[in-house]
Design a protein around this nucleic acid. Structure first.
Length: 203
DNA sequence: TACTGGATCCCT
DNA sequence: GGGATCCAGTAT
């Protein structure tokens, strides 16, 4: 089921190219408490151009800053940031150095370590509520800014291939919660597995 | 040194 | 529908 780890070169394509390839693949995090793995079911690309228009929905839109520095790194590391003062969001940095691109992993389907995930999430309801959102999956997997700028081809936090042959029905649509982005809000850069119950929300 | 608002989640 | 909660980015 879980195959070889993604290689460095697979992260060097543009975010819009990588984002639709991640659903179906596995996100793995090894910690002292145990191992968590999940099948990625939803992603969003950030920081590319669409018909020559820059992505004003991306953190990297206003250039390299202290927070966004990881996005400008060569593809293959993590970019984890704090949102709304209390939740973390996990991104896969993509593209050549200096591009400012990343893919936000918005939801996964738990595969290994559900007990650990449930323990970290203190919600009353478990099940799909464990990881069906960017903040939720980070909480479940124990991903915080401590995991920022980690090598995603390394042994701790990494992407692994799905080694089954099954075809995946991917839906492509606009991204969520970036209404402030005049142009970017209409870019069709959200990708999720059709009918998967772990997708954060459907329209 | 002060202000503003967000790639979210949860409860009402 | 609104509150929690904090820090990066920007303005003063």
């Amino acid at each position: 089921m879980i195959g070889p780890t993604w290689t460095p070169r697979e992260f060097l394509s543009d975010a819009v190219t990588v984002a639709p390839k991640l659903p179906g693949q596995y996100l793995v995090h090894k910690t002292p408490e145990g191992l968590c793995a999940g099948r990625i079911v939803e992603t969003e690309a950030y920081g590319c151009t669409y018909d020559g228009v820059a992505d004003d929905g991306s953190h990297s839109f206003r250039g390299l800053t202290g927070r966004t520095a990881p996005m400008f790194h060569k593809g293959g590391i993590s970019y984890v940031y704090l949102i709304y003062g209390m939740y973390s969001c996990f991104n896969v940095v993509t593209g050549p150095s200096g591009q400012g691109q990343a893919v936000l992993v918005r939801a996964v389907e738990p595969v290994i370590g559900m007990e650990l995930m449930a323990g970290r999430r203190k919600a009353k309801k478990l099940g799909k509520n464990l990881t069906n959102g960017p903040g939720k999956l980070c909480q479940a997997f124990g991903i915080t800014r401590v995991q920022n700028e980690l090598d995603l081809t390394g042994p701790v936090l990494y992407i692994a291939h799905d080694d089954t042959e099954s075809a995946i029905d991917i839906v492509q649509t606009t991204r969520i919660n970036i209404d402030y982005a005049t142009h970017g809000k209409s870019f069709p850069w959200r990708f999720y597995i059709n009918d998967n119950p772990y997708v954060s929300k459907v329209l």
